[in-house]
Design a protein around this nucleic acid. Structure first.
Lengths: 378, 378
DNA sequence: CTCAAATAATTCAACCAATAAACAAATCCG
DNA sequence: CGGATTTGTTTATTGGTTGAATTATTTGAG
């Protein structure tokens, strides 16, 4: 019941160790030798050699010139993830733009297409058709580079069920939308933008394996990463932090309840309360109030999940210096364990592209997690 | 980085499949044949036979008389988990009692020892010495039955760090307590009582693989079970639901903040507010108020984690019929997805023994999860 | 009563993947 | 130039699953 319920055969062993070797190479900043991979993984050099042969044959790895040597001994052949081979297509539909990007196995963004324009007046069929055109353009660009798309992922600002149906995307006005076949049979997974942005931040490195990413836009969403894996919840809609109750008698929220976080720290609510039109005009007092509400919500999340790092994205990233004090006050007061282990607040490293890059990254990650499946396809 | 970073060798394959077979037998209500295990797991009958031989030799499984047959063919030999073999020792220290129980591989509670008495005046050294005596009595009883303790686990009402140190147990007045060697070298793990009670409820069956268990005592704690596994958090103190903010301007809490859940739905706070001395005397209005606070907190948890089942234990279990309406009102209002997927509220199936049984169960589960380690010990 | 069909469990050769140890290759350094 | 050193490959061995054949034990039909 607890452990996975699938039998393990020899093929699974190979699949697992292929992934292990590939990821070891992918996570290494510099080209790495077979011997170093063996030392890092605990496998023998012979086994690593055999696995690397397969990975090179499947164009997941390439051999590069020997790195500059330090001591004696035969110089090592360097290994790197291949820049030609599988690639991930990241897609995004948001309130005021449509975008696509192609990321290769090295993590490099090879192509980036953005089509600005308010998506709200567009009906879902037309929007999906336009997205499909954009996706095909991106694929053509990728193929011209010698890349093969391993899959695609789409980021949307809304609740996505486990089966990929967009249950509701309030700011797009969408409800129960099924994303069809965008790319002639290439599988497209759909996910919440905050979830994918969180994955994207994880991929930048420098973050612990467990953290919460909070994205402030019109709505407020959170992506929860536990042990390096996105936590989606039972049905796929975890992280709905925007409707945490801050004050049971607070202002009415469009969700029907009162005093939700969104009414204190959501973009529209902040601007309305301050009587201004851009976030740049917000005064310190406004930001302190929003920060305290945000801090209260963060304290709740930390008390519940025991994460020690919170990454703030969306409009919160540039505002963090001015929000920080308000947030810190409530964390200090309300996080039970704040005395022993402080909570680290960080601004997101990636800008508005985070969700789209996270989507592409999710595809790449799937290849890194199961290279055997990719090899079997070639 | 995402997938586990350990190499897989053939021995790991065997270890995994041993666990798979053992768990398949353990999860089956009736004795089950080797052929059925093969069908259920996807392994071949030959492999299952070989694995079962090892498990029987290590007294983890026994063969029982053939089950009553239905059709033609050679009758199957039934397999069950052995009632003599490894056993788990569950221990608990709480405000007004000390307890131990012995659970065998079948899940049966073989012995149960409870020593009532207020533990608070007792200093930690004396308390741990008394606990050690109790543990040895339980071990002697187990050994007289032909059982061998595979380990022990201790449930405490407080924050337990990942290394097993009890950081703080407010109601015991403990701080930074290290549980030493209670049983001559037998490893003793320490965990929060709500965490272990949650595991215990999971073991009763009938619950989905992801749920949250909320234990109401003087404090309020939660055990978070995701995908059949206890979620402990980065440092081990997840689930501190008692200090979720209900009202930022509410009554002061002993934690230093204001308006914590504990001040609305904690046992002491409820009694104080109602001016009574037992929970039985609480009036409907008192319970409605507590229920609404609890419902607000539950809504937050559900919005964040997307679990669809909440189990209420401790004092909440018997009070649930009278709390339910208050809770449901807030869930209905505040859980974003309440329309599509209702939240199920349940009273805990196990009474005050839940934590102790969960502790013993955790030991048993460790054997079920890695029988190879147990076999290597014999 | 006997024999075919059916189901359970075991035996055995084949296969696959990792390992260990020996070996070949390529460099550094004295 | 030759020993030391490190990398990478080769080869025999080991451990574990598989699949097919075999044995075991029952039901049910003739």
């Amino acid at each position: 019941m607890t452990s996975s319920s699938a039998p393990v055969r020899q093929a699974s062993v190979r699949a697992h160790n292929l992934a292990l070797v590939l990821q070891t190479v992918a996570n290494s900043a510099d080209p790495i030798s077979r011997a170093s991979v063996a030392a890092a993984t605990g496998l023998t050099r012979a086994t690593v050699s055999a696995l690397v042969d397969d990975l090179i044959a499947g164009s997941l790895l390439i051999e590069v010139d020997p790195a500059p040597r330090n001591g004696a001994g035969r110089p090592a052949a360097g290994l790197r993830t291949a820049a030609i081979g599988p690639a991930g297509l990241g897609l995004e539909i948001n309130v005021d733009y449509r975008a696509a990007c192609v990321v290769d196995l090295t993590g490099a963004v090879r192509h980036r297409l953005v089509e600005p324009g308010d998506q709200r007046p567009v009906d879902t069929v037309a929007a999906l058709a336009a997205l499909a055109r954009l996706a095909r353009r991106a694929r053509d660009l990728a193929e011209a580079d010698g890349l093969t798309l391993a899959g695609a992922a789409l980021a949307v600002p809304g609740l996505v069920a486990a089966d990929g149906v967009i249950r509701v995307a309030p700011n797009l006005g969408w409800q129960d939308v099924t994303v069809g076949d965008l790319l002639d049979g290439l599988p497209v997974t759909v996910d919440n933008e905050a979830n994918l942005a969180a994955l994207s931040e994880l991929g930048t490195g420098g973050l612990p394996p467990s953290f919460v990413y909070i994205s402030g836009e019109i709505g407020i969403g959170a992506g929860i990463v536990l042990d390096g894996t996105l936590f989606r919840g039972v049905r796929g809609w975890s992280g709905e932090i925007g409707h945490i109750a801050i004050d049971p008698d607070g202002p009415a929220c469009r969700c029907g309840a009162r005093g939700c976080l969104e009414q204190y720290a959501g973009q529209e609510a902040m601007l309305r309360a301050a009587g201004v039109t851009t976030v740049a005009e917000l005064a310190e007092a406004d930001l302190t109030r929003a920060g305290r509400a945000l801090g209260t919500a963060i304290a709740t999340v930390v008390n519940l999940l025991d994460v020690d790092t919170v990454v703030l994205g969306g409009i919160y990233a540039p505002l963090l210096p001015r929000l920080r004090d308000g947030i810190a006050v409530e964390i200090e007061r309300r996080v039970l364990t704040a005395d022993w282990s402080p909570v680290t607040l960080r601004a997101a490293a990636l800008g508005p592209d985070a969700a789209m890059r996270g989507a592409a990254g999710a595809v790449i990650r799937a290849v890194l997690d199961d290279p055997a499946a990719w090899l079997a396809r070639s």
